[in-house]
């Protein structure tokens, strides 16, 4: 029996603008993520990583190609059932939380939206699971640190009990010390809840920590799909990947 794929993306092209102003942010991207797998998208800023995630999440209407989630093809519109299964965590925890909702409201709204019951107990447990504790329950985003906000954003994504998380640079807006905490939290959550991750990062170290495989992107195209092993050993085939590795090593020193 073969392992089924949680996500398949084939010849995905995403564009912004139309006519002469059209620019393709993603060009014929193809990759797949096994169920329970963790897949990275790496590349420099502007290479189209976030756009792929947003296209999967149904936040960009202008795309062509094929995308399937758990074997089901995705159309223009996403059903509520889709969002029950697939959730997204955004890069900037300052901008991505509703400024006028308490943590409690954010989470209960997400749960109600997907018809969950026993919300009170669920919220308490969820806050424990993301390492916040119930003391944070009635706070507003502006009363939280960056790391705490990102924990809330992760809790919000987990609230409908999804199977797949789309993570858009979940740590890049945070201090280095906080980054490691969040990465460990994400690793733990994935193990405990058997989640599938698609994670965007421009940081090879972050991808190496959390992913098994990664696509290397350059100017909207996937130039190479590599295993994390080969990233570690340097057994990559593309010059561009080598260049990324070299600059990552240089900045680590």
């Amino acid at each position: 029996m073969t392992v089924s794929n949680a996500i398949e993306v084939r010849d995905l092209t995403v564009w912004f603008g139309s006519g002469t102003e059209r620019s393709d942010a993603v060009k014929r991207a193809t990759f797949s993520v096994a169920e329970g797998g963790s897949f990275g998208l790496v590349g420099e800023s502007g290479s189209g990583k976030s756009t792929i995630l947003r296209a999967i999440a149904g936040l960009v209407p202008t795309w062509s190609g094929e995308m399937t989630v758990a074997g089901e093809p995705l159309g223009r519109k996403r059903s509520p059932a889709f969002y029950k299964k697939v959730q997204m965590v955004f890069q900037d925890p300052y901008g991505s939380l509703h400024p006028r909702q308490t943590v409690d409201r954010v989470l209960s709204e997400a749960m109600q939206l997907h018809g969950l019951t026993d919300i009170d107990r669920r919220i308490a447990r969820l806050l424990e699971d993301v390492g916040l504790g119930t003391g944070f329950r009635f706070r507003y985003p502006h009363q939280l640190s960056g790391g705490q906000r990102q924990r809330v954003a992760i809790a919000r994504a987990l609230a409908p009990e999804p199977k797949i998380l789309l993570l858009d640079e979940p740590t890049s807006a945070l201090d280095v010390s906080v980054q490691a905490e969040i990465l460990n939290l994400l690793a733990d959550l994935r193990r405990e809840r058997a989640l599938t991750y698609v994670m965007v990062s421009h940081d090879l170290g972050v991808v190496g920590h959390l992913c098994e495989r990664a696509a290397v992107m350059q100017q909207g195209e996937i130039v190479e799909v590599v295993t994390v092993e080969s990233l570690r050993t340097g057994a990559v085939t593309q010059d561009y990947t080598r260049h990324l590795l070299a600059s990552a090593i240089a900045s680590a020193r």
């Binding site: 149904g58 901008g95 991505s96 997400a110």
Partner: peptide, 10 residues
């Protein structure tokens, strides 16, 4: 982003 997050919440 939080508006995108609302959409992404379903």
């Amino acid at each position: 982003d939080f508006v995108q997050a609302l959409y992404a919440k379903g």
